[in-house]
Amino acid sequence: MAEPFLIGDGMTGGYGTVDILHNCTISVEKGQIAVIVGPNGAGKSTAMKAVFGMLKLRGGAVRLDGEDITTLTPQARVRKGMGFVPQTHNIFTTMTVEENLEMGAFIRTDTGIAGTMEQVYDLFPILKQKRYQPAGELSGGQRQQVAVGRALMTQPKVLMLDEPTAGVSPIVMDELFDRIIEIARTGISILMVEQNARQALEIADKGYVLVQGANRFTDTGKALMADPEVRRSFLGG
């Protein structure tokens, strides 16, 4: 079997001396959506951060397109084509929407930035309307759009989202998920952590159920949704 586009392979590690992740494997194929779900404290966000290099690994490796990137800093991974949207504090509140997007493209030296910005505006038309407004004045859902848009500005090959729908209304959540599917259709791989497991698995090509920092179930989103044990334990029946 060919190696997935991005894989965190057998990751073990944590913040202090105590390991949070135990031989945990997360991967995503090109243009697909992978979702990490699990109970509180299962290490979902930690697994994502480990893939992004915000956590020192004691074991395992992270490979992007076959290249070992385990020792790279998060900034270097951004340059390699990974985009990351943190769960909170993910926009520059005092700067305008457009400036947020510009800052997203900070590492780019080419001349195509304006084009990418138009693509983001096409994806999130509301942002174009509010382009000169400080991002801090927008609603919760719009702020998440700014955050995703900022990460897209580097033209990443993989977009990583840490609970993108935390604290937004169900309608806005559906809207966001639609946009995420749209992004994946352009060939960008999506890896996201979600609290709203049921809705997230519905759009997922692949789902990971983590418990205490280890893989418990791994399958396609549909298969996990159908699995009675997963349903009972993690999806509330």
């Binding site: 998060p74 951004v78 340059r79 943190p86 504090h89 520059f92 509140t93 800052m103 590492i107 900022r150």
Partner: peptide, 13 residues
């Protein structure tokens, strides 16, 4: 940007 949100600024390179 750095004054506004240090972590995100670092993330943006």
């Amino acid at each position: 940007a750095y004054a506004d949100n240090e972590d995100l600024a670092l993330l943006s390179g």
